[in-house]
Nucleic acid binder design. Structure first.
Length: 314
DNA sequence: GGTAGACCTGGACGC
DNA sequence: GCGTCCAGGTCTACC
């Protein structure tokens, strides 16, 4: 099947735009050219797990070619399109990105602006929790094990499956450590409707109301809340962590204690308003690419595991 | 309102 | 190869 995309959309650039593209059940396979990369992703749809092979042979703005591992049953096509659209931010208007490029022209030439995310809010929330207080290789492992152990056919597990587990089981099989009870509790809240994805995705609700609700959730603090906000398409907050402080010190030549650097980072990116996360993130991303080559050339099973803070400090 | 310490895992390092 | 130290964000208890 084919999926239409916005005129500015470029698969290789827009998939390799956020670290989640290196986490299971996502699998980006770099090609020899910008056009030849392939994005594989397993989704758990009504008729069971299905593997998508997504490419864009004809280049920027041209439809995506999507090869499926099985035939779709009734009703699955709409759900598949919805999930792919969320993941690749196909619903983000080109006009919004033009506005971003006007505000921060550094990214106009490359066209960067879209940030890859997950097909569902549940997966984004769990991926965020698995990235807190842990080195990147451990985040990779937690997501790999969650998909292997609890995902149907290697897909990301549905909240109903995680909600039915004992925390100790999650800890023993997926190396999630003390996050076990928090992950199970979050899954239960998704299942019960206490966390209503539609409410969080509602653009009529202001950022602060969403942030306040997020920060009440188990395992979600200031950093995680700001990160989930950007995953929800709200880019006016910065998820500041030790990596931000490193960026402040190494790239922006800031001096002082961590807290002071975080305050200075907030001031530095304030002029970018409701696009500030994009400006901040692509600065970080540019640094990683300077160290490790263009993101669309990164091999998940090689570069992902060597992507440690210690190596980046070199 | 601010902060110290615990939480868990795995990489880094010293021997 | 083994043992120890440390990084990482959230949560709780305490001041």
């Amino acid at each position: 099947m084919q999926l239409p995309v916005p005129t500015d959309f470029l698969l290789s650039r827009d998939v390799a735009s956020y670290g989640y593209f290196l986490l299971e059940p996502n699998h980006w396979i770099p090609g020899t050219t910008v056009r030849s990369g392939v994005f594989n992703r397993i989704l758990d749809l009504a008729g069971g797990p299905i593997t998508l092979r997504i490419s864009q042979r004809l280049g920027k703005g041209k439809p995506l070619d999507v090869t499926l591992s099985r035939k779709l049953v009734a009703g699955e096509k709409a759900e598949l399109s919805r999930q792919v659209s969320r993941m690749l931010r196909l619903d983000e208007p080109a006009a919004v990105l033009r506005e971003f490029h006007k505000l921060d022209p550094r990214w106009k030439r490359s066209g960067r602006g879209r940030l890859m995310r997950s097909p569902t809010l549940f997966e984004d929330v769990i991926k965020t929790v698995t990235s807190c207080n842990v080195a990147w290789p451990s985040t990779i492992r937690m997501n790999q094990r969650l998909c292997e152990v609890f995902g149907r056919g290697g897909a990301f597990p549905k909240p109903e499956i995680i909600a039915a587990q004992r925390p100790a089981s999650l800890r023993a099989t997926c190396s999630v450590g003390y996050r076990d009870a928090r992950i199970v509790q979050l899954a239960k809240m998704f299942v019960s409707g206490e966390i209503d994805a539609a409410w969080f995705e509602n653009s009529d609700i202001d950022d602060e109301a969403i942030r306040e609700r997020l920060i009440e959730l188990p395992g979600i603090g200031p950093y995680a809340a700001a990160n989930i906000l950007q995953l929800l398409g709200r880019f006016g907050h910065l998820p500041l962590d030790t990596e931000s402080v490193r960026h402040g010190r190494v790239v922006l030549k800031m001096r002082g204690k961590s807290r002071a650097i975080m305050k200075r980072l907030a001031c530095t990116f304030k002029p970018f308003g409701h696009h500030k996360f994009r400006s901040y993130w692509f600065e970080l991303w540019m640094y990683y690419e300077a160290k490790r080559g263009p993101a669309h050339t990164w091999e998940r099973d090689i570069i992902g595991k060597t992507f440690t803070a210690a190596l980046l400090r070199e």
